[in-house]
Design a protein around this nucleic acid. Structure first.
Lengths: 339, 339
DNA sequence: CTGAAAGCGCTTACAG
DNA sequence: CTGAAAGCGCTTACAG
């Protein structure tokens, strides 16, 4: 392996000079730079990132933390899509991505502590926000640069995060259904441990309240339910004495599954039941019927989170901030006027 | 930051002893281990991974290289799913994952060279195999441990890789359509630059040949086409004087899109046209109609690739090998007897 | 079973 | 504008 010393020797300079040439320090003459660079080229020199990190106390890498890599969550294109935003932005800034994908909360916690304490990364992006999360608490307590994609459960004002205005958009979306004449609107949500579910549920309730529609506990379906047995979950919902005529669904993937089960039960979308959903996956355009969905701009969530994190890394006393990514309501064909 | 020296001082031992305790060396007495561990606990010591890497010349991380992060590719659940396999296996072995997601071939090349030459990782998994790939060539020439998910284009015998038997399974799948009475079978494939497309295309041709059906150039649709304008691609296929009655489709995602366009043209699946596809995404069960698809065991591809790589890292003279992951043909409802 | 010393390949005050 | 030296936090022969 060719090191800085080899280059120094051949170029007749000190190792420190070579180091400065690499950093393109303005204190080195162009002439020397040229000579050193030629030697680097000749020898095929490449800086050892480990050594640099150790000496400079900066890794040029960020940690990206996925939620429990349950089968279900992982087939969700949400993650590749945020990753795409993250990697574009980090790559632009010469940062690498260190990925953590624990399969339990404990595993995640350990991966993160080891990442942070072991100085593998300069900062961390949390790709989820759950209630009572010890990983996030650890990050806060150790005063390590981090950014959350999603609204934090605790200490909201003291952490930087990037999110959509979930309460607001879910309220709007529910209103949209109400204006179509629906009163029996069910909410098919993700796990209640995630803040995004809580926020959307609240937006949903707010809309009902404004319209004077009482909230009906029976109209609440949890993801945990669906995972277990989606068919039964939807069946018991539709077999209610007063079944819903519209659904607000946490994400497109769940919506697809619901539609499939509904069709099996001979309930047609949108004729018999309207569905609006979130994420606007590429597929949603091609599903049958094309899904009316809220585009939450996943790519941008990732991109902005990274930008925010890198800013915090380079300027440690940057104040915590909330960045709200605007959404787009994409009206397609899964909703209809109540008959 | 608490270092090995702090621990050593407080425990009244040499730093080297602390280091050996961390490595759980058998040459240290249980008594000393205990005392040192207590101090580590007390001080909240955590080893600096950078320093360790530098001294031990091992990073405990593997690099995972995604293909060009084009929008399209990235919404494909293939990647999260291989990642899940990779991360399970690497996590079991205390390895971290360093992710590279260039958006052009050049970017990928640079990320990989810097990863390898900069000693960020101990080995690399290539998540794609394309023809004429300088990244792979670089990996080979630098004699760096790496494993390919997919069959390499060059030097097949000299590189380790994990793959399905794509030629064979595509032949089978095409046969399945032939046995249903189809003769006009089109192939809707990914980019011809990827070896997986080449192999599947060959399997398809082989089946035709065995059945004495001449290969028809017009029945070949490329992904590049579809990305541009999927609707038009399928339209010109179906407007042929002798349109296909069956489709072999490179992956489920493309299949969904095809189905959607077909329905728009009032061509029904499977009544008017049969479709078989690859990957068996979670969604395929819920699509309309449920897709007949080949489950290529994506998770396992990732898992085995990692196992193979870690083996190579720990035993450098391990011989190159090919690992073939078995597939499952999942018959659902997108194919029908030719009328 | 344990320690002193050298070294991994860099960076960065300090000095000139 | 450049160099000598110390140091980042570990590991690992070597010696006893």
């Amino acid at each position: 392996m060719v090191t800085i010393k080899d280059v120094a020797k051949l170029a007749n300079v000190a190792p420190s000079t070579v180091s400065r040439v690499i950093a393109n320090s303005s204190r080195i003459s162009e002439q020397t730079k040229k000579r050193v660079r030629e030697v680097m080229e000749e020898l095929g020199y490449h800086p050892n990132l480990q050594a640099r990190s150790l000496a400079a106390k900066s890794t040029q890498a960020i940690g990206v933390i996925m939620p429990n890599s349950a089968y279900y969550a992982f087939q969700n294109p949400f993650f590749p899509e945020v990753l795409r935003g993250i990697s574009t932005s980090s790559h632009d800034n010469k940062y690498g991505i260190y990925l953590s994908t624990g399969s339990t909360e404990d595993e995640i916690y350990h991966e993160v502590t080891s990442m942070v304490l072991g100085r593998r990364v300069d900062g961390v992006i949390l790709l989820y926000s759950r209630i009572n999360d010890k990983t996030m608490r650890f990050l806060q307590q150790s005063d390590f640069p981090f950014v959350v994609v999603g609204r934090p459960d605790e200490n909201e004002e003291r952490v930087s995060y990037v999110d959509n205005d979930n309460i607001h958009i879910t309220k709007q979306v529910t209103n949209y259904l109400i204006e179509l004449g629906h009163k029996n609107i069910a909410f098919v949500g993700g796990s209640i441990n995630f803040v995004v579910t809580i926020d959307r549920l609240n937006g949903y309730k707010l809309a009902l309240q404004d319209a004077g529609i009482p909230f009906n506990e029976d109209y609440l379906v949890h993801e945990d339910f669906i995972k277990e047995n989606g068919r039964e979950a939807i069946a018991s919902l539709m077999n209610l004495s007063d079944p819903p005529t519209a659904l607000v669904t946490q994400d497109d993937l769940i919506a697809y599954e619901m539609i499939s089960h509904l069709e099996d039960m001979n309930i047609r979308v949108p004729d018999d039941i309207s569905i609006v959903s979130f994420n606007n996956l590429m597929l949603s355009e091609h599903s049958k019927p094309p899904l009316t969905s809220v585009d939450i701009c996943i790519y941008q969530l990732g991109f902005e989170a990274t930008k925010c994190l890198l800013e915090k890394i380079s300027v440690p006393d940057t104040l915590p901030k909330r960045i709200t990514i605007p959404t787009k309501f994409i009206e397609r064909k899964s909703c209809e006027q109540k008959k």
